[in-house]
Nucleic acid binder design. Structure first.
Lengths: 204, 204
DNA sequence: CAGGTTTTTGACCGTACGGTCCATAACGTA
DNA sequence: TACGTTATGGACCGTACGGTCAAAAACCTG
């Protein structure tokens, strides 16, 4: 019928994702994207619509990938829920202390969004809630199995872990090393152990 | 002798700081800065050297201000060290859930820096370590007064709180509300209560 | 009030950006 | 093999950016 495309969309999105992760949305040049993807400007424009649209595609891919990775780490039942969370946090610590210049597109979108109404903002809010959902699921298992207190607030703890991992990402970017980041991860985990603040402010 | 300046440097830096907090370094236009500060381009250039240099000034002011604020919150001895940390975290929760578009310049610098060698990166690393130092000081008091375990790692806990607050900032930016952010803050605080992981993995 | 020095003002400049146009190539179909 | 359709490549465009220039203004000193 017509001339077929020489590229695979998902590959292009992947390459673009890499560029955005390193440079951010605003700082990434169309030329950067052209170079990274191998497509011409026009092809890129035909297929996706422009830099911003391409970023959204990359963002959504990044979000799926992140959710998938966390689900993977927290979903297996080869260890107790709490052990899985620990393992996951330690993995993150190592990942974030690697010296590559990547920053998750979610974080990028969060920082570069220009307002509550900005599609960037809403997209990331969804992503964060999705991520929190994965944590919440694992935390519920932990609660059911008695690893964390019965009255623990699973929802806020889930958000707490999202916050902690985002913070660790930033710390890693600041050059904080693997050892410290690992210690931070273990500290973070201890939030699951103490008694609820409101009822038991004193240590036993 | 010579024509005197019509402006006060620190005021200009403050105004610029505001612009950078909202837009970031790359996205802030020289015109934005001119409009916000009231100076002409050339005056701005004479006094500071350019956009990037002005950002560094703003960054350093922001860092001092942040350190000062945390010191203030954690330094008074009107309450126990741990209570002060709680109060501080709750304050942050409220602050970060406000809907203004500001992002701390430290976070901005972290995300926009282009590499380990980038002055932006080193400047923020210093800032983060300084901030961690303030937390560490308060945590030591907490340890001395027996509020947290004797063997608590004050250094990593300090970094942990830096991570948590950065994460909360991002969450707030994602539109997470005051209630949730407050709950997250309280969750974070509980990391100070549990026993050390290595020695006592079981809850009492 | 005149000289010297610095600030200010506003016009100006080169560049690099995101995006578009158009001629041509590459394919499936008839 | 001719046609219709879509993809491609590269030249092109308007704009907005960071930065610079030079003339004029404002001040202090003597």
């Amino acid at each position: 019928m017509a001339r077929p495309r020489k590229f695979v969309e998902s590959d292009v999105v992947s390459s673009a994702s890499e560029v955005f992760a390193v440079h951010g949305l605003a700082a990434a040049t169309l030329d950067d994207l052209v170079r990274a993807t191998g497509l011409g400007k026009q092809s890129l424009y035909n297929a996706f619509g422009g830099k911003r649209e391409l970023f959204f595609r990359a963002l959504s891919e990044d979000r799926e990938e992140a959710t998938r990775a966390v689900s993977e780490a927290l979903g297996h039942d080869d260890a107790s829920p709490l052990d899985r969370i620990r393992g996951h946090l330690l993995t993150m610590a190592i990942e974030f202390s690697s010296s590559d210049r990547r920053v998750s597109l979610t974080t990028r979108a969060l920082v570069e969004s220009t307002g509550e109404a900005d599609p960037l903002s809403t997209a990331t809010k969804d992503g964060i809630e999705q991520l929190a959902g994965v944590y919440a699921q694992c935390l519920e298992h932990a609660r059911d199995s008695g690893e964390i207190p019965e009255d623990a607030n699973v929802q806020s703890l889930a958000m707490y872990f999202v916050a902690v991992t985002r913070g660790m990402e930033l710390l890693g970017r600041a050059g904080v090393g693997r050892a410290v980041l690992t210690a931070v991860a273990l500290d973070a985990l201890r939030a699951l152990h103490g008694q609820r603040m409101e009822e038991a402010d004193e240590r036993p």
